[in-house]
């Protein structure tokens, strides 16, 4: 596996090069910020018609991970859909693609800021998941510890290469966005430097997960 192994509050975790998190002990796979249905939402709002392939691309990458890892539990860490209407407007082919993934395993939708109301899909809805010793939620709580969150779409630059990344310190892990149509927020942004401890790490996604001190 092309991941980076570390422990958070005693839990042994792996940050995968694909941007997903693997918790082997629980056979739990966690992805954040899928933003499914983004092109549909933009077109609905009167914007331009972006190539409508991001949902199938995101799901295809997720399906590949699931096929390789055979997780018992999948946690989608919020902003899984670009908005609630987008979750209902998912074309049939993509609906069944998603249903096939959810089938036969525990599937948890953490609610995000883009998709606060329950989506019309199977799987469990929750604001937070507690699985000792960790808490999974969409947006980091500055006072929390042992926390896994998403929301910020962090990215970091090493040499001249900028890539989506995980951010990790003793208290928390922030996941990169997994969705195809997602941008990134530089790790140097005050929102992120304020949240992360001085000795935080950035784990860059890519063919091989690469760990560096968090650029700030």
């Amino acid at each position: 596996m092309t991941g980076y192994d570390f422990t958070l509050a005693g839990a042994r975790l792996t940050a995968l090069g694909s941007g997903a998190l693997w918790w082997a002990e629980h056979r739990l796979l966690c992805v954040s910020d899928l933003h499914l249905g983004k092109s549909e939402r933009l077109a609905r709002r009167g914007g331009s018609a972006l190539p409508p392939y991001e949902t199938r691309d995101t799901l295809a990458r997720l399906a590949e991970l699931i096929a390789n890892l055979q997780p018992d539990t999948v946690v989608c860490l919020g902003d899984s859909f670009d908005d609630d209407a987008a979750s209902r407007a998912l074309p049939d082919a993509e609906q069944s693609q998603l249903a096939a993934l959810i089938h036969n395993r525990r599937w948890i939708w953490i609610t995000g800021n883009h998709d606060p109301a329950p989506a019309d899909l199977s799987g469990e809805q929750m604001a937070e998941l507690h699985l000792a010793p960790l808490t999974f939620r969409h947006i980091a709580d500055p006072l929390a510890t042992a926390e896994v969150s998403g929301h910020y779409h962090p990215k970091a630059r090493v040499r001249s290469t900028s890539r989506p990344c995980f951010l990790l310190d003793r208290s928390r892990l922030i996941l990169p966005a997994f969705g195809t149509y997602t941008g990134g927020l530089r790790s140097t942004d005050p929102a992120l430097t304020a949240l992360m401890a001085a000795d935080a790490l950035a784990i860059l996604t890519g063919a091989q997960a690469l760990v560096v001190p968090m650029p700030r």
Binding site: L50, P51, Y53, E54, R56, D57, Y152, H153, T180, Y181, T182, G183, G184, L185, R186, D189, A191
Partner: peptide
């Protein structure tokens, strides 16, 4: 608000290349 909201046109290019190269 930062660049999180927008994503690079490179992603659109890669997506079209993969799914709709004759576009």
């Amino acid at each position: 608000n930062g660049r999180q909201a927008t994503f690079s046109s490179d992603i659109l290019y890669d997506t079209l290349r993969k799914y709709d190269p004759e576009h």
